[in-house]
């Protein structure tokens, strides 16, 4: 059911771990749904020098985390912000329909880590200040909703 690329990134995930004194950290998802992604960034002069991740989740969640970190290392912040879930999926030669939400989570995790970086550096807009980039906090980043994939009940 998974492509060879997905299995490769699942069995040999790139960039597992954390970064001490990271310039940006973003965590999205929740344990209830079975997926949590945490991405750490090292940023200098607007360029992402390093990215690491920790993920609780299925094979697709691990593989999309791994691929997302690969895609953003060496990119500028602007370039990284443009990376969509589709780009992550394409780089993995596709995902089963039921697993598309994992790629959305990867996109959100990058966005959350970059937002954290902007906040730490006083670059965030006023609107962004009240937001942690995680779906559920305000809904504006809720890509799950846009994809109609969020079956999670608000409690």
């Amino acid at each position: 059911m998974y492509s060879e690329k997905v299995m490769d990134h699942f069995t040999n995930p790139r960039n597992v771990g954390d970064i001490e004194a990271a310039d940006g950290v973003g965590q999205v998802g929740n344990a209830k749904c079975g997926d949590i992604m945490k991405i750490y960034l090292k940023i200098e002069n607007g360029i992402i020098l390093d990215a690491k991740f920790k993920t609780f989740g299925c094979g697709a969640a691990v593989a999309t985390s791994s691929m997302a970190t690969e895609l953003i290392i060496g990119k500028t912040i602007e370039e990284a912000q443009k990376i969509t879930n589709k780009a992550v999926m394409e780089a993995l030669d596709g995902l089963p329909t039921a697993k598309v939400h994992c790629s959305v989570l990867a996109e959100e995790a990058i966005a959350a880590a970059l937002l954290d970086y902007r906040k730490k550096n006083g670059l965030a807009t006023e609107e962004e200040e009240g937001c942690n980039g995680c779906c559920g906090s305000c809904g504006s980043h809720d890509l799950h909703m846009h994809h109609g994939l969020d079956e999670e009940n608000e409690e």
Binding site: M7, F10, T11, C33, G34, D35, F56, G57, C58, G59, A60, A61, V62, A98, K99
Partner: peptide
């Protein structure tokens, strides 16, 4: 998470199942 566990067991030629959402 269970699916990850099953996939890794499968790579070791062990077949089991899980109650995870995935």
């Amino acid at each position: 998470e269970g699916e990850s566990l099953l996939l890794m067991l499968d790579m070791k030629n062990i077949a089991a199942s899980s109650g995870s959402a995935c």
